[in-house]
């Protein structure tokens, strides 16, 4: 249950009603009067309101849920999905980026109806409090993060272990050091290496999937996405700033970008939506982990059945097919 200080605007009427219900239950316990009929009616109203709010979430509201400060982050998922997580650090060139974490672990597949197996599991990591947020650079990697991820992915391929990649970033870090050390090259290089990585890569968008910062570790064989996560070419705020020349159109931008899991399955970018409990992953993390675990287990089973070359051919075909265009009269250049 979300605490009050982290309430999203659209959750407020629901929480008010829930508080009322709690009050009435307490009152019922204290007094002689039987309030069970009133309580029942109120319970029904709470359910109705909950369903109507979460069935009709706008895209911007989903962005807010994806950014909820209590939403499960990469390390929470890793803890819930695996045993013996052994973090591996550093890019062997410059440093260790704390906004991407990864390592070897035993995927606890049997908990979700699948097989246990060693995986290389990685993802963007955000921080919970001010200190950790800074330490993790809000989940915005520098080039070292991408290069560490590349090192670990290649290690996974070398030892025949699949890769599970969790995406949750507001974008690659736009700092001076990042440019000096080749942010663009680091992302490009990862796309290239991931396209030819001879081991299955399962990608799960667990929160925010912003732009090249997310895709830079996001090229894989199966792309899963949590129901309230978002994934797009740019964050709604930045899009608003560039196209509307103001910060005030983030809702419009979120709407226009079509950045939800449902939107992305329609254009074949996302293969499968992982359902979240009503109210979002933070309201019931356990149920969320169960759904993620099952989807990852199934993906691993399917992909590990493929021969290496078939896997790579399929991966290339998958991304080759993405895009929307038509054919018309060829246009000659002006003389």
């Amino acid at each position: 249950m979300a605490d009050d200080e982290h309430l999203l605007d659209f959750e407020k009427p629901l929480v008010e009603l829930e508080d009322k219900l709690t009050e009435m239950r307490e009152l019922n316990a204290e007094t002689q009067d039987d309030l069970s009929k009133e309580i029942e009616a109120l319970e029904e109203r709470v359910e109705q309101l909950r369903t109507s709010i979460y069935r009709n979430l706008t895209r911007w509201q989903r962005v807010q849920i994806a950014r909820h400060p209590q939403r499960p982050y990469t390390l929470d998922h890793i803890e819930a999905l695996t045993e013996d997580f052994t973090e591996l650090r550093g890019d062997r060139t410059f440093g260790d980026d704390r906004s991407i974490v990864g390592g070897l672990a035993q995927f606890a597949g049997s908990r979700f109806g699948y097989r246990d197996r060693t995986v290389m599991i990685m993802g963007h990591q955000k921080g919970r409090d001010t200190k950790e947020r800074k330490h993790r650079r809000f989940g915005m990697p520098n080039p070292e993060g991408y290069r560490k991820a590349e090192r670990l992915m290649k290690m996974a391929a070398k030892f025949g272990k699949p890769v599970v990649m969790l995406l949750d970033t507001p974008g690659a870090y736009p700092g001076m050091g990042a440019e000096e050390r080749g942010q663009a090259e680091a992302i490009a290089h990862n796309l290239f290496e991931m396209a030819r990585l001879e081991t299955p890569v399962v990608v799960v968008v667990i929160g925010e999937g912003a732009s090249g910062g997310a895709l830079g570790v996001g090229l894989g064989d199966r792309i899963l996405m949590l129901e309230n996560a978002w994934y797009s070419v740019i964050a709604p705020e930045s899009c608003s700033q560039i196209l509307w020349r103001s910060w005030d159109h983030k809702e419009d931008a979120a709407q226009a970008l079509k950045l939800t899991a449902t939107d992305l399955t329609e254009v074949d970018i996302v293969d499968e939506i992982v359902p979240e409990p009503v109210g979002g992953a933070h309201r019931d993390p356990e149920t969320t982990y169960q759904a993620v675990g099952a989807a990852v287990g199934e993906a691993l089973d399917d992909l590990e059945a493929l021969a290496p070359q078939a896997l790579l051919d399929r991966r290339l075909e998958k991304f080759d097919a993405l895009g929307a265009y038509t054919s018309a009269e060829p246009m000659s250049p002006p003389a």
Binding site: L191, G212, L215, L219, Y231, K258, I269, L322, G323
Partner: peptide, 9 residues
């Protein structure tokens, strides 16, 4: 949107 992002891939 995300379709243009995928052109990088």
């Amino acid at each position: 949107g995300a379709l243009s992002l995928m052109q990088m891939a």
